[in-house]
Amino acid sequence: MIPSPPPRHRLPHALGPVVWQDEPGTADRPPGPGFWAVTRHADARHVLQDPATYSSLPGPGELPLLRRLLSHQDPPQHTRLRDHAARALTPERVERFTRTARERARTLLAHALSKARSTDGVLDLAATVSDPYTSLNLADLLGLPHADRRRLPRWTGPTGPHALEDMTGYARELIVHRRRYPDDDLTTMLAHNARLTSAELEMLVPLLLTTGLAPMRDAAAGGLLTLAEHPEAYRRLREEAEELDSAVEELLRWHPPILTIRRTAATDTELSGRHVRRDDKVVVSLAAANHDEQVFAAPDRLDLARTPNPHLSLGAGPHLCLGADFARLQLRVLYEEVLRALPILRLAGPVPPSGSGVTNGVASLPVRAV
């Protein structure tokens, strides 16, 4: 059965679970080579869990700079570096951020609500709360000096070559800084790991910046948008009729922060009866996989108590989100504070998308300060 995601995530020509999609050119972009679109949960998981067949390495025509990022590496290099980062990002280190995250969410909400109530009664919940909340949490985790945090907004937009160059260049500066001035943060721990070379560190730190900024921002705003669009679900959550932990998972399923993940076939293979040739692009639609009727009962219904909930919004396999625990903590705390501060979560205008074809973000989230 073909998954039935929300209309904005449907693939226009997806007549089966794995189907070839052409990439026609546009006014500002030449035609692409085309790709295999993967929409079924089982196929998506298979692709993400099999790096020997479906490689993360950048292909011809992709930015050479991507080869410096851990997210575009394959095992065994990827496995070794990821293990070092995972040992630094311990559950205890993540849990220590709970108090800081809560104080930050409360402060941002209080300021935004006060300003809105003194003007037109409308606040942009993304621009004034969830965006700075997620960016500053990551800055604390990585140990970015306060003077450098003004750089964060330029890295949360589309990551073109200039943004990637700027980010990787800054990562080198941050590593040098934390070797000279150590602190209790993730960059300090990685920078003082004698088993990591400078080149390897320059893969890890930009990865943590790229995967921790825009996707986390989009997950937070996307979850709040979903709750605003489902007032009864918000009411039940506020009355503690639903468990917040399961709600976090369902909001991630419903509004994945990343829409697609691209891989390249490393060898000739077969996927759901389709012959995939070596070097073919294979694009997993996380939004479609998260609405697969073979896996999720009533997938087009928001169910904050849904369990189990094997969504793929945080990835799967070797590239499962390294900061998944940190992401869940941030979302849980943010939603708790919004539920406490706003008896009703009501949209106050249209919610424009961010315009990216890969991330699932919103440009603004106007709500009533009730």
Rank of each mutant, 00 (worst) to 15 (best):
I2T: 15
P7V: 10
L11N: 01
P12W: 09
P12T: 06
A14I: 00
L15A: 14
L15D: 14
D22Y: 01
P24F: 08
P24R: 07
G25L: 07
T26E: 06
A27E: 05
R29G: 00
P33Q: 04
P33F: 05
H41S: 02
D43F: 03
A44H: 06
R45F: 07
L48F: 11
L48H: 09
Q49H: 04
T53L: 14
Y54F: 15
Y54N: 03
S55V: 12
L66G: 10
L69Q: 14
L69N: 15
L70V: 06
S71Y: 05
P75L: 10
P76M: 06
P76G: 09
Q77D: 07
R82D: 10
R82G: 09
R87T: 14
A88D: 06
R93N: 00
R96V: 01
T98E: 15
T100I: 13
E103A: 14
E103K: 02
R104A: 03
R104K: 02
A105M: 10
L108C: 11
L108F: 03
L109W: 07
A112S: 14
K115T: 14
R117D: 02
L125R: 02
T128L: 10
V129A: 04
V129E: 06
T134K: 04
D140L: 13
L144G: 11
P145I: 13
R149G: 10
R150V: 13
T159N: 02
H162M: 10
M167V: 13
T168M: 13
P182Q: 00
D183C: 00
A194M: 02
L201R: 09
L204R: 11
P206M: 08
L208C: 03
L208E: 09
L209F: 12
T210N: 12
M216K: 10
R217I: 15
A233G: 04
A241W: 00
A241L: 09
E242D: 10
L244R: 01
E250R: 00
H255C: 10
H255V: 07
P256S: 12
P257N: 03
P257D: 00
I258T: 15
L259K: 15
R263T: 03
R278T: 11
D279W: 12
V282F: 11
S285N: 09
A287R: 03
A288I: 08
N290M: 10
N290Y: 06
Q294H: 15
F296V: 08
F296I: 07
D300E: 12
R301A: 11
L302Y: 03
L304I: 01
G323H: 05
G323D: 03
R328E: 11
Q330M: 12
V338L: 12
L342V: 13
L347D: 03
G355H: 06
S356A: 05
A363Y: 06
A363F: 04
P366R: 04
V367G: 02
